[in-house]
Design a protein around this nucleic acid. Structure first.
Lengths: 196, 196
DNA sequence: CGATATATGGAACGATCGGTCCATATAGAG
DNA sequence: CTCTATATGGACCGATCGTTCCATATATCG
């Protein structure tokens, strides 16, 4: 079937490595040389397989988003109640305070803040990814309403936006070195709003 | 007294112009050429007067912080109650949704997210500036407690951190194109927490 | 008037950027 | 085996980065 020399690396692993570089350094600050080193491929292979730095980023962001939303979506189905899902998610994030993981943040929030105002494809995809997070929060809120943990008459869309805002703010706090007590207290107040 | 050729520009105006460039483009993305064009001075004058791009940024951030904190602090003293101050601040920010002003964001939150994880001077000053915002919120919360709008037994520090988190999240929402209704609803929920 | 000290404009520097190009390697097809 | 098609390594490109340097302009001091 296929002719010519076969690929000598796993595009999957390479894309994952690229994702980690974009995650740690940001879109602009991640140089193609950084990416090549992490992906363990040559410059030719990068451009052959992914086209450009921009397209590679879109692929990396897509993978991150699908992995995150997929993982959280599955967890939402597994967990006893949607309310415990939301509580655990925010509390676990708060507990990252001070760690290297906290300094990394979330690729989606990182990208939304870095690229939010540009009009290019990366900016558009970052916004869409943020919207996907809000959608997931919306699912969780609606489920919590069904389960009786959030009053039916409350606006699920507004609560979902509020949770996205809270997570974005929490990520900012963690990135600027908030300690674990500060993060936990702020998250506690955030979650109080859900029950009212 | 002084010898030699006198300066031909206002360092004050030049620093203000630089601040606006850093505000709009971010620290890394603001090139010295961008800065020179906005400041209307020559490359030599920039390095003569400010030393380096890094020092110029520190000066710009300092001016922004002092102007912001000063303005808000004065407003807090002028306004009828601290609670109305907080409400007006968040509601007015939400109402920026969709505007160019919203796309700009706040230099302090922008810098905290861009530089939060680096160990250099700009990073350190960005964190300090974020802490200054939390301090202002703390002042407002304590005053609101004195004025009877927030219960005395509530943790003023935790509420201050919560407000900083909320403003950071709101800025992120605005940067990623949230519309005015979303922003207003999220802010409404945020402010509900103050009264509980 | 020099003499001196600072400011300015702009050329130039080495480093790094994303991307291209080409010679070479390596597979399958006939 | 030859032919063909794709992959790879790495030199190279022009653009841009922050910064330095130097000749020149412009002020004050004696």
């Amino acid at each position: 079937m296929t002719r010519g020399r076969p690929i000598a690396f796993s595009p999957d692993e390479a894309a994952t490595a690229a994702m980690q570089v974009f995650w740690a350094r940001g879109y602009d600050a991640a140089s193609t040389r950084d990416l090549l080193a992490a992906m363990h491929i040559s410059r030719s292979s990068l451009y052959q397989a992914f086209g450009s730095k921009e397209q590679l980023f879109l692929e990396a962001l897509r993978r991150y988003r699908e992995a995150l939303i997929g993982r959280l979506g599955r967890r939402l189905e597994t967990v006893p109640t949607a309310m415990t899902f939301l509580e655990a998610l925010f509390r676990e994030t708060a507990d990252e305070a001070g760690s290297e993981r906290a300094a990394l943040g979330c690729l989606i929030f990182n990208s939304a803040t870095e690229l939010g105002q540009r009009g290019d494809l990366p900016s558009h995809h970052a916004r869409q990814s943020l919207a996907a997070i809000t959608e997931l929060f919306h699912l969780a809120v609606v489920q919590a309403q069904r389960e009786g943990d959030i009053a039916q008459e409350r606006d699920a869309e507004a609560l979902a936006t509020y949770l996205t805002m809270g997570m974005a703010g929490l990520r900012t706090l963690l990135k600027s070195g908030a300690d674990i007590d500060q993060a936990r207290q702020a998250v506690g107040l955030l979650l109080d709003t859900l029950r009212r």
